[in-house]
Design a protein around this nucleic acid. Structure first.
Lengths: 214, 214
DNA sequence: TAAAAGTTTGCAGGCACTGCAAGTTCGACC
DNA sequence: GGTCGAACTTGCAGTGCCTGCAAACTTTTA
């Protein structure tokens, strides 16, 4: 268990956090976002409403979850990629650990996605929140390429990459494929300069050998 | 004056709307978002606070403004582009009228951008709101290409295109160039598949012949 | 076991936003 | 020109998110 650092305190905190997340997801899934108050969630997790806000800055945050991009080492990994590697490739590599972490947590994420699809304002909330992560990405990409802050490339890159990841996430529950596949696929459209897609190789999609692994 | 349809009523409505927008922008510019209440804005525009919400669904909406993508004919123009034209090109053409409209309104838009830069939560709000426009774009692109709803291309396209437009908008006030230029530039990075940018042709940027037109 | 450090909770309050119903203004049609 | 109906404004009352503060409480450290 590499859960918390040490001691009962952190363990308890982690438990409370989990309880709040689960309560939030379950209740909103059952009743819909606007029929669940923060008080409901807090009650279900058996803490005071005030405590809820010690853990999450907003009701939405408990539901949409932390974007893996935010605090994990994606930025550092991108910066420490070998010098010759193009940014797109370095980014995909840097993201891989985060993606597999999500893959391991897929039950929660699938539920999240379902809840978001059913409550569009949550999608907006997620997008807004991921824009903060994008800002960090802008800085990292600029740094890696030695470009000035005002250069447009990092901003375009971050916006497009963020969008590609987001669409992959959205498709994930219904497409029965690993998240990394979907991300790669999304990036392949970017790689071709968003050229009109080829007619899919074969309407009878021969690659459909049910990938049960996920 | 092609302002309102007819009559004093619509004229008055348009005036009220403008007054609210101007009041909102001015006050938030002066004091910062969190030191301006809806009541302040309504007072400054000389209407009741309740009336404010007859015009805007949220405080943010009065400030961030309507995205031109939303209701104007961009979608229709995209769909009615000549058959052979690639989507990227068709999209840029379809957007042109909206962009020049913004160019004509540039004073307001510059103020908006300044206010947004100073109040990051407004940027998030704008991004969230533009995601609604992106959804429409997804459908339009899918329709134009005859792709099924589940196909990833339209979603990736919309996310990337939306991001490109957004970064162009953000750069607009500081870059002293027409918005269309900035949009084209952003799309040029997408067109190359987000390849690492060339070292800028010349650090002494010879294209800098001050474009005063804007 | 006592002090320190971190967490939870209640309380009071600000503010965004909503539905409703009453009042007001405007346009249309006679 | 007067009247009716539609559209718009307003006040009111209420819900619920979110915040700061200070008092309890719990865990860690010494």
């Amino acid at each position: 268990m590499d859960e918390a650092k040490t001691g009962r305190r952190d363990r308890k905190k982690q438990q409370t956090r989990q309880a709040l997340i689960e309560a939030a997801l379950r209740l909103v899934d059952e009743r819909g976002l606007e029929h669940v108050t923060v008080e409901d969630i807090a009650d279900a997790a058996d803490v005071s409403p005030r405590t809820f806000f010690n853990y999450f800055a907003s009701k939405d945050e408990a539901i949409t979850g932390d974007l893996f991009v935010e605090d994990d080492g994606t930025g550092e990994r991108l910066l420490s990629a070998a010098p010759g590697v193009p940014v797109v490739e370095a980014f995909l590599n840097a993201m891989a650990p985060g993606l597999t972490a999500m893959q391991d947590d897929r039950d929660v994420w699938f539920l999240r996605m379902r809840v978001m699809e059913a409550n569009p304002s949550l999608v907006m909330s997620l997008i807004a929140r991921s824009s903060a992560a994008e800002n960090q990405l802008v800085r990292v990409v600029a740094k890696r390429l030695g470009l000035p802050q005002a250069h447009p490339y990092p901003a375009v890159f971050a916006a497009a990459a963020g969008g590609a990841v987001r669409t992959a996430m959205m498709r994930w529950p219904s497409a029965r494929r690993p998240l990394t596949d979907l991300v790669d696929e999304a990036f392949s459209y970017l790689a071709t300069g968003l050229a009109d897609p080829q007619n899919e190789q074969d309407p009878a999609d021969p690659i459909n050998e049910r990938r049960n692994e996920l």
